[in-house]
Structure formats: C-alpha cells, structure tokens
Amino acid sequence: MILLDVNGSQHQVDVPPATPLLYVLRGELALNGAKFGCGLGQCGACTVIVDGHAVFSCITPVGVLQGRKVRTIEGLGTPDNPGPVQRAFIAEQAAQCGYCIAGMVMRAQALLEAHPAPSDAEIRENMDPSLCRCGTHMRILRAVRRASGYLTGTAAPDAERASQ
C-alpha cells in the first residue's frame, strides 16, 4: 500500500511502487487532467507539480513520493471557480485540442509560484519542455503573461474573452 498526498488529500493506493504516478492519477484516483502523450518524459502532457516543481508524472514512480505533495490541475480550481492560471488560459482561448493544456497549465503554475513576474524569455525557456502539436503556442504564451498579470495585480481579474 502506498500513501499519496494529492491536492491536499491522502489516498491509499494498492499498486507496485514502480507504477508511474500518471497511471495512478488516472487509473486509481480518476484525476484525468494529466494525459499520456509519450510515456517517456519527452512531451509534457503528463506534467504535474511535486513539492513545487513541475515534473513528468509518466516517469515518476509512486514509490518515490513518500512524504511529498502532489498537485494536479484539478487542484487549481473547478469549472465554476477556476484558478488564476486557468482563467488566463480561458481568457486567451489557449486550447485547441486541449491535450497538452493541463501540462502547460501546471508548468506555468509552478513557474509563477516561484517567479510571479517572469520575462518573456523566461516564460519561453520555462515552458520549453512541454510540447504542443496543434500550434497554440502564441496563445499559451499570452495566457502565461496574462496569468502573471493577475498574480501581480497588474491585469484585471476578469475571465472575458481577450484578443483574437
């Protein structure tokens, strides 16, 4: 039995310790935000936050997570009450197929918690490990900038549709 702390709640899961966190999130805990893109730690669709750092959950065996805090996109907010990064992504309409987006949001969240006002170059460098096949990169970058504005109080906290 493995004890996991996910989004502030404790979960006992009966899986081998080598099981990737991604499979436990989706298969045992029904937290389907994180996606399987490659299973190799190369695409970022599975990105979640562990102890404040964005990590690839597909190459994180649950056995190493004793005493550590896992956060997924479900922990950032709800459809009725989205968190600031989610609101920014909605405002910029940054999703096309949406497959990369949970990973993008978590990677952005980790960045902004550590550096609420990153430069454009810092945003690009930080988001680099997460790939997007549909090509919504420019919207994603605008969303991260907008979220930074929300968090530093330099942008209005609205969820209205932004520039097309």
Binding site: P17, A18, P20, G39, L40, I59, P61, V62, V64
Partner: peptide, 13 residues
C-alpha cells in the same frame, strides 16, 4: 528499491 525506481523512472527508455 533501486530496481523499482529503475522500472518506473528509467526502463521505458
């Protein structure tokens, strides 16, 4: 323990 970590974190590649 090392084998379990290898299997979950490394073995895919």
């Amino acid at each position: 323990v090392g084998a379990a970590i290898f299997e979950g974190a490394c073995a895919e590649c």
